[in-house]
Write a protein that binds this DNA or RNA. Structure first.
Lengths: 157, 157
DNA sequence: CCTTCCGGTGGACGGATTGACCAGTGGACC
DNA sequence: GGTCCACTGGTCAATCCGTCCACCGGAAGG
C-alpha cells in the first residue's frame, strides 16, 4: 500500500489535465501504455483513486456562500442528527469530531440572507443543542491533493 | 446561469459512473449525442463543471487522520500565513472566515502522533497566535454535491 | 400570420483511442 | 540456476470522439 514516483507523476498529470487518455499519459510519462493502464487499474482497486467524478462548483450553481458550522449534539441523538443533516442538500459534508458530542459541517447558501434559512434548516432539529457558524470570506487554498500526493510519492512508499 | 433538469441528470449520471463517455451518456439520458456534447461544453465553459480530476483518498495514501484547525492570525500577517500554509502539503484547504483575523484549515496526518508534527509545522510560524484543533472521528456525510445539483435543477434555473 | 433564432435530432465521416492480448527482457529474490 | 514480476513494444478489432450536415419544432418579435 502506497504509491511510488511514477504513480505520483501519473496522478499529478491526470489532475492537471483530466481530459488526456491513457495513451497520451503514457507518452507524457515516457512509459508504455500498458504500464499506465496497469497503474491506473491498481490505483483504483487500491482505493487511492476513488473515481473521476465531475468537479462541480457550488458558486456556479447559484450557491456562492460557504460556511462552516460547529454543532453541539444532545447525548444519544447522533444517529438522528446525521439522518437529518444528510437530507439537507446544502450540507456538503459532515464530520463528527473530538469533543462533547460535537459535529462539524460545511454549508453553502445562495446569499448571506439565504444562509439564515439554511442554518435554521440545520439547527431546527431536536437533537441539536447549539450551533456556531463561521462564514467563509476567502479561500486562499482551495481543496487540493497534489502536494500531498507528491510528498507521498517522495517517501517512496 | 443555472442548470435545468437535463443538466442535473447529466451531472448526476457522470458522478455515479464517471467512466462512461458522451455516447453512452446520451443513450442513458435518452437524448442525442450532440445534445450531451453541447451540454457538457456549456457546463464546462460556464464553470459549473470545473473538471474531472482524479478523486484521491488521503487515507489510501497513508494519511488516515483528518483534522480541522482554527487559527488566530496576527494583524497584517495574513499574506505571509497563507504563503506558509500553502507550502505545507498536509494542509488540504485553507479559508479565511468572519472573525478576528481568523483562518480555518483542513489537515491530514499519518497518525494521531504524526498530527502533532503537522500542527507544529502549521503553527510554527510567526504570524499565528493560537490554534485550536478538532480531530475527525467519523465522516457520516462525505463531501458531496449531487443533492445540491438536484435541488438546483429542480429550481429550474 | 410570417420570419428569425435556437436548441435538439438523427445521421455521417475519418482519425484516434481503448481494452485485450502476446512474446521478450531485465531485475529481484530464493 | 530458476522463478516471479513489472515493464516494453507490438498487434488486433471494436468503439468512441470531434466535427460536420440538413432538418425540425417551438418561442420571440415584427
Amino acid at each position: 500500500m502506497g504509491i511510488d514516483r511514477l504513480d505520483g507523476r501519473l496522478i499529478t498529470l491526470l489532475a492537471r489535465e483530466p481530459r488526456i487518455g491513457v495513451l497520451e499519459a503514457s507518452r507524457r510519462l515516457g512509459v508504455a501504455r500498458g504500464t499506465v493502464q496497469a497503474r491506473l487499474d491498481r490505483l483504483q482497486s487500491n482505493g487511492v483513486i476513488r473515481g473521476f467524478g465531475p468537479d462541480v462548483d457550488p458558486a456556479a450553481l447559484g450557491y456562492p456562500v460557504t460556511a462552516f458550522a460547529t454543532l453541539e449534539i444532545k447525548q444519544g441523538q447522533g444517529v438522528d442528527v446525521r439522518a437529518h443533516l444528510s437530507g439537507v442538500p446544502e450540507v456538503l459534508e459532515l464530520h463528527t469530531t473530538t469533543g462533547h458530542g460535537d459535529m462539524f459541517c460545511r454549508l453553502v447558501a445562495r446569499s448571506n440572507a439565504d444562509l439564515q434559512r439554511v442554518i435554521d434548516l440545520v439547527v431546527g432539529f431536536d437533537g441539536i443543542v447549539r450551533a456556531s457558524t463561521a462564514i467563509v470570506m476567502e479561500n486562499p487554498v482551495p481543496l487540493r491533493i497534489i502536494p500531498l500526493v507528491e510528498q507521498a510519492a517522495e517517501d517512496t512508499d
